[in-house]
Design a binder for these strands. Structure first.
Lengths: 210, 210
DNA sequence: CTGTTATGCGGACTGGCGGTCCGCTTGTGC
DNA sequence: GCACAAGCGGACCGCCAGTCCGCATAACAG
């Protein structure tokens, strides 16, 4: 069992280690973005973003493959780290920022503000989302990030009047919709926030049904 | 581009071909089921159902690997075929069977009946579901089966009063919840139908919000 | 500045997988 | 029984996640 650490458990990490971590993360996002550019449908290739092999990440980052694995544990860990970085601000704002994201606002406003933030992240990182889903075979539900969002959502839904077990499932439902491929499918240049609007409509419907 | 065919386009398929197709399908489900039995957490293995390699399927079926690929095109095609077989009856019943599944019943009854059927399939084939999701990189939404269920759901939701674009997204939402890992997580021996009940609750909430 | 040490590095290596290819076998129609 | 297409099988290929261990070097004490 590889002990994946985003940052070292205790004490500062060595300077070169920190530099390499940044390099690997940047290389990963560059490869992910590059995959998006292939307009021509090759036929075989299929999903964009899945030919991001860790060998290539390591090469582009200018580090050895071992470094990538020591730092991130495995493929899933790498994508999770990138995702975590992208959503750190939202996480903080939700946990103890000012309303309407943070505590204090009525659940409806908090929910809509939260989904606006999460939707923006999803719309801007759809390929990363897919890569992460593919990499987490089925332990997606054990991911700390997932659990944080899920607790938050379930809490708000419960606060809005849903019985606990329903709130739990409905929270899973809302998160299930954050599927990379679905996000990509709904996001077009002329409707960049269609996905978010749809999710908010869904949330409103659920709230009204409490 | 491999031309996957479940059954030959025209004329009957040769006897041995048919026999082999059955054998491969059966081997696949046996391997899938066997994966479920590993109570001990191996640590590395991860998801159950993902070590079903096509080599093993071919070996267990007593055929060559080439046969598997000629018949099903690729990994995704194999799981899709199995899934299609499992849901064929429901598909037929929905398309032109008697109410409440088939046409004629009010949308609410049809929806609940449909989800009862689809939920049962999901609960009984959660590992297959996961395997299929993993195999379809992100063309899940182009799968004919998916599109059939989606059209059906969107139709019912629209019939119940949702504007078309909302109905479309809500249909995706309901289907997004049919995630193999989530189904497995909610299905326990003492609550074998908890997933279905939850989905029905979700559907009811959505209908009431129309 | 120098010596010591553990932290980190890298890339060869392994096992295994999806998918292809082509010479051979076998079912089928006449 | 024959000819031929349809089907077969498994060797083969390229690739990839993940491991391992000898080597370099950052950090720090004296």
């Amino acid at each position: 069992m590889s002990e994946a650490r985003g940052a070292p458990a205790r004490g500062a990490e060595r300077a070169d280690a920190a530099r390499n971590r940044r390099a690997v993360l940047q290389a990963t996002e560059r490869l992910l973005a590059e995959g998006a550019g292939n307009g021509r449908g090759g036929g075989v290739g299929g999903a964009s973003g899945e030919h991001v092999s860790l060998d290539r990440v390591a090469a582009l980052a200018g580090v050895g493959k071992g470094t990538v694995f020591r730092r991130f544990g495995n493929r899933a860990g790498l994508f999770a780290a990138l995702l975590e970085e992208r959503s750190r601000a939202l996480r903080a704002a939700v946990a103890d920022g000012p309303p309407p994201l943070g505590p204090g606002a009525p659940p409806r406003e908090r929910l809509l503000a939260f989904l606006d933030g999460l939707g923006a992240i999803a719309e801007g990182n759809a390929l990363l989302l897919t890569a992460h889903e593919q990499a987490c075979a089925d332990d997606k539900y054990d991911d700390p990030s997932y659990q944080f969002w899920h607790r938050h959502l379930a809490g708000l839904l419960a606060e809005a009047g849903h019985p606990p077990e329903d709130a739990d499932f409905l929270a899973h439902t809302v998160l299930a919709v954050f599927d990379g491929a679905l996000v990509r499918r709904l996001t077009t240049p002329d409707e960049p926030r269609r996905f978010t609007r749809s999710v908010q409509t869904l949330a409103t419907t659920l709230l009204d049904g409490a």
